[in-house]
Amino acid sequence: MIEMVIEQRRRSLGGGVEVGRVLPFARRRMVGPFIFFDHMGPLDLASGVDRSVDVRPHPHIGLSTVTYLFAGEMMHRDSVGSVQAVRPQEVNWMTAGRGITHSERFERARAVGDHLHGIQAWVALPTGDEETAPSFTHHEGDDLPQWHDRGVVGQLIAGTAFGLTAAARTHSPLFYAHLEMAEGSSAEIPAGHAERAVYVARGEVECGGRRHAAGRMIVVDRTASSIRALRLSTVMVLGGDPVGERLLYWNFVSSSQERLVQAAADWREGRMKLPDADDQEFIPLPDGLVPSAPAMS
C-alpha cells in the first residue's frame, strides 16, 4: 500500500544547474535515515562550461553524503585529503561526522563537455555517531554487487538487500539500490525495514495499483512488495530504520539545535578547514537561515 507520493521540486544550484529536490518534503522529512534526496539532471554541459556550475567548498556535519551517477563525471575534493572522481555506477561515500568540507567540480565537462545524470542522497547518522571522525571512501566494481533477474539489472549501492551486501560502511540498518528495468519486468521492494520508498528516475512504473512517472518518489508501507516497469525504467529503491528526530540547517544535520548553531558559527568564523586541494574559495553561510522544524521519520 502507498503511504505517500512525493513529486520532485526543481531547485537551482546556481550557474544554470538545476536539481529535482525530493527529500526533505514538508509532510515527509525522512525515509528511514535518508534525509535528503536530489535528482541531478539529465543535463548537457558544453565544453568550456563556466566554473559557476561547480559546487564550491562547503561544510557538513552529522550525515553521510552518497553520490551516485548514471552518466557523467564529478570531481570530489575534501578536507580529509580525498581527491576522487565519481563516474557512472560508482559511489563516493563521505561521512561528515563532527565536520568535513568538500567541493564538487565538473572538470571533465569543462574539457570536453559532458552529460550529467545522477542522484545525491544524505543519510543522517544515528545520535551516537553524529560526532564520529570524518571520512571518505570510493566504491566501484565488486564493492557494489550486481545481479540480473528476468529483465532487471540491479546494483546494490549500500546496505543489505536482495541477498547481497555492499561494501560502504553504514552506521544504521538501511538499503539503497539502482534497478534498470526492461518493459514488463518486475522487481521486489526489499522487506525487513520500517520505512521504504521507490524513486523513478526514468521511465514509468506501476506500484500499488497506480502508474508513476519519472520524478516521483513512492513511499510504501510494510505490505507493498513489488514494482512493475511499464516501459524501460531507471528506479532507485531505498529505506531503512528510523534514526530519530533530526533538524536541518543549510548543509548541517543534527539532533541538537545548539550543535547546528555552533556549526554555522564555526563556518562563518573560518574554523572549519577547507580542502587542501581546493582552498581558494568557498560558499558563504547564507543570510537569514534558522534551523528547520524537526525532521520526523
Rank of each mutant, 00 (worst) to 15 (best):
D78M: 10
F25E: 06
E258Y: 09
M1L: 14
T170D: 12
S185A: 15
H58W: 02
G41Q: 00
R98M: 09
S292L: 07
V123E: 15
L43K: 01
V243Q: 15
P42K: 07
H39S: 13
S47D: 10
G97H: 11
V5E: 11
R27S: 14
G154R: 10
E258V: 12
T223Y: 02
D38R: 07
V205C: 07
Y68W: 05
E18H: 13
P33Q: 02
P88M: 15
T170C: 11
D129W: 05
E104Y: 08
G184D: 00
H102V: 00
E18Y: 10
G62C: 04
G208K: 12
R77M: 06
T101Q: 01
L232D: 14
V290R: 01
Q155C: 03
Y199S: 02
I100V: 10
A85W: 05
D276Q: 08
R268D: 11
D44G: 14
I157G: 04
G192A: 06
G113P: 04
Q146N: 00
R110P: 04
Y68H: 07
R210L: 07
V83R: 04
D241N: 15
G239S: 08
A124H: 08
V31R: 02
A264S: 13
M296W: 07
V198N: 12
G184T: 06
P173Q: 03
H171G: 01
S135I: 04
A191E: 07
L289A: 10
S254I: 00
A224W: 01
L63R: 01
E73L: 01
M75V: 14
F25G: 02
E3I: 11
G288T: 07
D44E: 13
M30Y: 08
S64Y: 02
G81D: 06
E140I: 00
G62W: 00
V86P: 07
W122I: 04
V220Q: 05
E3V: 14
A224Y: 00
Q280K: 03
R28F: 07
H148N: 15
A182L: 01
W147Q: 05
R150H: 08
A187S: 13
L232Y: 06
Q89K: 14
A111K: 13
G141F: 04
